[in-house]
Nucleic acid binder design. Structure first.
Lengths: 150, 150
DNA sequence: CTAGTATGAATGAAGG
DNA sequence: CCTTCATTCATACTAG
């Protein structure tokens, strides 16, 4: 791992050697890439390729949704909107009001392992929220993958 | 709790339009409806489709959550637990096919605009607690959408 | 002030 | 790819 970074910060080189990292991630990375990434991540926890795949998929989809116009009820936007999408989508909202997003997204994944109990306010909530589920055994790792664009 | 104070009342015609749906959408309004509803609501504040979508999602989810929680209690001593392990999704304890609900919700949304200074106590409390965040300007409305089905 | 609750928001995981 | 469910987080508001 040439990353050499400490902690949980994995620089995702989705673009691989491809220099087209200009924020244009061509769909989901190849399976190989996913495998690779998941391998790296597996070191920090129980992260399978599946998770990585899901992550990329969701990420891409949501990014698209976010940027997609379809903001709804706009105002006098009589543009030739090609609303052919049969309008069946569910999450293409997001108002155009969304300020322009900085394109310097560095695609940095920050992993917050659940093991690290920050013991913050969340802990309190979690206490009563959980309310003991009989099964103390956490067979299902929540896998709290959290990404942050720096 | 709802002090009975209701602000506006927007009737969402779920089932209206949308490619001849005839009227069979009691569970998920889906885009079209969401867009429409958000249009109506946008008049009262900065309400985007996203918010409406979230609201519906959460509403449904919590309803189900509650149901599940209750049903689990209702089990009492029914050992006939059909924990079909075949399910690989997650830890679905009780998957009892809760009988379909009548779903006779009238789909009436009640909106409580934040501008309304109805709550006398809450206002005071807010002052103390919040202490005005310098920026009195609600540029980014907390979006305290409070809708209730009648 | 602390505890509890309600709800919006975000994301992981599947299903189709 | 798109839709949907489930879970979790964060915050606002209420009550003691």
């Amino acid at each position: 791992m040439d990353d050499g970074m400490s902690g949980f910060c994995i620089k995702s080189r989705i673009g691989g050697g491809g220099g087209g990292c200009g924020g244009r991630d061509s769909g989901t990375p190849s399976t190989d890439q996913i495998q690779k990434i998941s391998s790296q991540l597996s070191f920090y926890g129980k992260i399978e390729s599946k998770n990585v795949f899901y992550w990329f998929q969701n990420h891409k989809a949501r990014e698209r949704q976010k940027r997609r116009r379809v903001s709804s009820v706009a105002h006098e936007q009589h543009d030739q909107i090609h609303q052919d999408d049969k309008v069946s989508s569910a999450k293409h909202f997001v108002d155009v009001n969304q300020v322009s997003e900085p394109e310097r997204v560095i695609e940095t994944l920050q992993l917050f392992p659940l093991n690290t109990f920050n013991a913050s306010e969340s802990a309190k909530r979690r206490l009563f929220t959980n309310e003991c589920k009989e099964t103390d055994q956490m067979d299902h790792p929540p896998l709290d993958l959290r990404l942050s664009f720096l």
